[in-house]
Design a protein around this nucleic acid. Structure first.
Lengths: 357, 357
DNA sequence: TTGTAAGCGTTATCAT
DNA sequence: ATGATAACGCTTACAA
């Protein structure tokens, strides 16, 4: 026979690590059943006032806080969601995650983050995370479609970011194509014809669509892109390397369209290193409108995308889906905005007339 | 009477949301007890090979995955830790969080993030988070000491970042003082005497220590700071505002020490707007060495702090503390490095000689 | 209005 | 080597 659970166990080593009193102790102290304590926690109005008072006093005195684990297990929900991102770094991912966290927290659910860092076990980690949350946001090409499909099959609500939708999941993306067209058309107006796209359309849906817009702008102008895309990851260092290669070529382009601002910064550095002036000798544009863009020299012409909002919308979609208030997939496309500054060749704005606040 | 749990319940609406088979179903299918299934999961060698095979087959066939919740409840650990940050944004916080996530994930524990965003209910959210994790990292002045003390009292392992230690918790910080001294001394060498510190020593331990270093450098040179610190949050916009005020004054300083790089960018913008050249008319320095710094014009002189490492070390400390492999508090101070570029007045590096890779 | 007791899905301690 | 069964801490029918 074992000792009865409530009995004298002076200094139990205790498997339940730290953690204060349980609902049983509160119940005993208040002279009620655990059900009543539970009720007081959730919907105080279900309990008669005198009883409620006793319970509340007991809760206070014992400093009782219900166990999130126990509650989750009983309820079958985690009250948490997860965000999966690739090897991150750079303002884009953090801004999106922040926007996501902000609205998730406001809705009362915790946020788990998981970076895959091109780690080998990443797929399992993602799948695993799917079991610890009520819903998942997956950014870009973090994991491939098969994994997303598996997640969906398992019944995990999923929202995809900056990535083509997968059956059964929602998605949030931006209008890359039109913005890219506008950007390239703007470059045409500066007289550029030999424009190179620097980014990897094969590695990212965003880059792919930007490249598509790049092409269709050419087509609309009766042109054919002079160069194939220069494959390059979303990193300054890669942009710099790519820039060195391109600019060393005999028939170098007169304008460089970076797939994001970090690539563009790398490109500008490569240009400087090659002794070229931007934009006089070579125009450079970016994408994202990161804060530093306004402070570069020349100031960066780029496309603003609402990074923070992407995160917020993702949270909202996920929430709808988790609460079951919506079942059919929904795909949100957020607008972008061309931000013309001087790296494209436009006159440097005067101090007073600077773009942005 | 209720139906026996295992009995026919064709299409149970099921409180346990999604979620596959339980350990009971696996056990039944393999013709063993749940204890055996549990053993196979954790330490396969405890089970005889033939039995193990049957169990493993059942697991496969049913696609059984143990419930993280059930496991955590039984074990009394969450296999998760949390990071609390203030209103974040900017490279500093994200870099630290990334470093933290990276090593935490490698150690197998999930990471929960919580931004307080100067929200009213923040304190409760933090306390609450403390109940859902095995340990907590708190960045800067996110919450005040009383909250940290309460967390410690509750037995939550806590690591503090960029903040004075609180009894019972570990901490990770950088050597602000010496770097600030080196920085200011460098400015002295450029001939500056009227130097203003832009940042809020009262709002951040980091800013406080940098200001202290600023003062002691003056003292060491037999000088007294010409200006009181110009209070300013770690934001570009605030730096810009602060810059406008200072530079409008009749007796304006000849050098500005921003408490971080974003403030410095704001200061440089204010200088531009005021028609002043940096560094000729006014020198500006920052802190953190964010990636954009190398691309500014002029390139930013700053102090590099190992943001990523701060996160990694925090993870390591927390891990030690959670595993109980260490009990006495430990306080890590990471080194910083003065990065001299041109915004302080040093000659602009040639293209080839640029700082950085 | 309140109590009883059956889950929720594990782990771990005893027995056998 | 394996099986029973008691925790773990809560929620929620159902009864009273």
């Amino acid at each position: 026979m074992k000792a009865l659970s409530g009995a004298s166990n002076g200094a139990l080593p205790d498997r339940r690590s730290r953690r204060g009193p349980t609902i049983y102790e509160v119940a005993r102290r208040a002279g009620v059943s655990i059900a009543t304590v539970s009720r007081v926690q959730r919907r105080a109005e279900l309990v008669a006032e005198p009883t409620r008072d006793r319970v509340e006093r007991a809760i206070q005195e014992l400093e009782y806080r219900p166990s999130a684990l126990g509650r989750s297990l009983a309820r079958g929900s985690h009250e948490a969601t997860g965000v999966v991102f690739p090897d991150l770094s750079g303002p884009y991912y953090s801004a999106v995650i922040l926007g996501y966290e902000e609205t998730s927290a406001a809705e009362g659910s915790s946020v788990l983050i998981l970076g895959t860092h091109r780690r080998p076990g990443a797929v399992d980690q993602v799948l695993d995370l799917g079991d610890r949350v009520d819903g998942l946001v997956i950014m870009g090409r973090t994991v491939d479609d098969a994994v997303v499909e598996e997640l969906v099959r398992r019944g995990v609500p999923v929202v995809l970011l900056a990535r083509g939708p997968v059956a059964g999941s929602d998605s949030v993306r931006v209008d890359n194509r039109h913005a890219a067209e506008a950007l390239v058309t703007h470059l045409f107006q500066h007289g550029h014809r030999a424009i190179a796209f620097v980014g990897d359309p094969g590695a990212s849906a965003d880059a792919f669509e930007r490249w598509e817009g790049f092409r269709s702008a050419h087509a609309a102008a009766g042109l054919t892109p002079t160069f194939e895309p220069i494959a390059c990851a979303f990193r300054e260092s890669e942009g710099r390397e790519a820039g060195r290669r391109i600019l060393a070529a005999a028939d170098r382009p007169t304008a460089l369209v970076g797939a994001n601002d970090e690539i563009a910064m790398g490109l500008m550095e490569a240009a400087r290193d090659a002794g070229l002036r931007t934009p006089a000798d070579i125009a450079v544009t970016g994408w994202d409108d990161i804060p530093a863009g306004r402070h570069l020299s020349p100031q960066l012409t780029t496309v603003r995308q609402p990074m923070h909002d992407i995160g917020r919308r993702a949270a909202a979609l996920l929430h709808e889906r988790m609460s079951g208030s919506r079942t059919e997939p929904r795909h949100v496309v957020l607008p972008t905005e061309l931000v013309v500054r001087s790296s494209c060749g436009c006159a440097a704005p005067t101090s007073e007339g600077g773009v942005g606040t």
